[in-house]
């Protein structure tokens, strides 16, 4: 299904574009590959900026507004860079029933950051998840990719600092 047309030059010579290009090539630069490609960008760069969205749009020949519409429809995609460390508080039902809302509140207070935001020094992002599927460990948080089980408002900060280093 490879379509013949001129390949567009990546925005920079950053090697990470090769991963993005490989994804697009694997899908024959087909517009259908938009979501897969956005995943590749996010995985490589951590978030999707306008430059990346432009490049992906043009390479796959998807209208700009459509790309933006897709990128904002799916909450997995981040349009802003995240903090150096991240904490995802699961708000799934099992976690919620066991008080994850209070865990979230405690983290927000301790780091002075609203859910979905990053601290002004760019150190720490606080995020929420619909359900990470670790209901047996409720309430669970994910710090820098590691799931920490059975959180309470009392121990959550200590647990986060254990992984992120004392930091912010």
């Amino acid at each position: 299904m490879y379509r013949h047309f001129t390949e567009i030059e990546p925005p920079s010579d950053d090697k990470r574009w090769r991963i993005v290009n490989a994804t697009m090539r694997r899908h024959g630069y087909h517009p259908h590959a938009l979501i897969e490609t956005l995943h590749a960008v996010q995985q490589s760069f951590g978030y999707l900026d306008d430059e990346a969205l432009h490049y992906v749009s043009n390479s796959l020949r998807v209208p700009l507004s459509q790309t933006y519409g897709v990128a904002t429809f799916y909450h997995f995609f981040q349009l802003k860079p995240g903090g150096r460390h991240s904490c995802v508080v699961c708000l799934g039902t099992a976690c919620y029933i066991k008080g994850s809302d209070q865990v979230l509140e405690r983290v927000a207070e301790a780091y002075d950051v609203q859910p979905g935001q990053t601290t002004s020094d760019g150190e720490f992002s606080l995020l929420t998840a619909r359900c990470i599927g670790s209901c047996g460990l409720a309430p669970a948080v994910v710090v820098d990719g590691d799931v920490i089980p059975k959180m309470t408002p009392e121990n959550v900060i200590e647990q986060i600092r254990r992984i992120t280093g004392n930091g912010s």
Partner: peptide, 24 residues
């Protein structure tokens, strides 16, 4: 194919739209 954080994509027609690379 990867989902991307949209519950509505569990609905079959939305899921198909998502596989096609569109808004779910």
């Amino acid at each position: 194919r990867l989902g991307a954080g949209a519950f509505v994509c569990g609905e079959e027609t939305a899921l198909l739209a998502s596989i096609e690379g569109r808004r779910g």
